[in-house]
Computed example of a mutant assay.
Amino acid sequence: MNAALARDRSLSCHVALDGWRRGHGNRRIVNEIIRATYMTWFLQCAGYGDAHVELFKVAECAGEVALMKADESGEQEGWSLDDEWVSTFTEILALHDAQLRTAPLHQYESAERRLLAFLHGPERSPIPAPND
Rank of each mutant, 00 (worst) to 15 (best):
A103G: 05
P122I: 08
L100N: 14
H24K: 10
E75P: 01
G23N: 06
E32Q: 15
L17Y: 11
S12L: 09
L119P: 11
R101L: 09
A6W: 05
T40H: 10
P130E: 07
Q44I: 02
H96E: 02
E84T: 02
C13A: 12
E112A: 06
P126C: 07
L115G: 03
S87G: 00
H24W: 08
A111L: 03
L67G: 04
R124T: 03
K69Y: 12
E112F: 08
D71I: 00
L119T: 03
T90N: 08
L100P: 08
E64H: 12
A66N: 06
P128N: 11
R28Y: 12
C13N: 10
Q76K: 10
I29F: 03
V15M: 09
P128I: 05
H24R: 09
D50A: 12
W85Q: 06
S87E: 12
M68L: 13
L119C: 09
G47S: 08
M39K: 08
A117W: 04
Q44W: 05
G74F: 01
E54S: 10
E60A: 01
L100Q: 13
D8M: 07
D71T: 08
W41I: 01
A46Q: 11
Q44N: 09
T90M: 02
E64V: 07
S73C: 08
T102F: 03
E64F: 02
S80M: 00
Q99F: 15
A6D: 03
W41L: 03
G19V: 00
G23V: 10
S80G: 07
H96Q: 06
F89P: 05
E64L: 05
A6Q: 05
T88A: 13
K57S: 06
M68A: 06
R28S: 13
S12K: 10
F42H: 11
A59M: 13
E32H: 12
L5H: 02
Y108L: 11
G78E: 10
R28Q: 15
P128S: 12
A103Y: 10
G19S: 07
D8Q: 15
L100C: 07
N26E: 14
R113H: 14
S10E: 14
V15S: 04
G74H: 06
M1E: 11
Y38A: 01
V86G: 01
D50W: 06
T90W: 08
F118V: 05
A103N: 06
G121M: 05
S10N: 12
N2P: 11
C13P: 01
T102L: 09
T40Y: 01
V65A: 05
D82E: 13
I33W: 09
L43C: 05
C13W: 02
C45P: 00
L43F: 02
T88L: 04
N26P: 03
A70G: 04
V53I: 15
G78P: 09
T90P: 00
H24E: 13
P126H: 12
G47L: 07
I34A: 05
G25I: 02
Y108D: 04
P104Y: 09
D50N: 13
L95V: 00
S125H: 14
L55R: 14
K69T: 05
A70L: 06
H52A: 12
D97Y: 01
C13T: 02
T40Q: 15
A129P: 11
D132P: 00
L17W: 10
V30D: 09
E32K: 12
D71M: 04
L95I: 01
D71L: 07
A46C: 01
H120M: 11
A98Y: 11
Q76S: 04
R113Y: 02
V86Y: 07
R21A: 14
R113P: 03
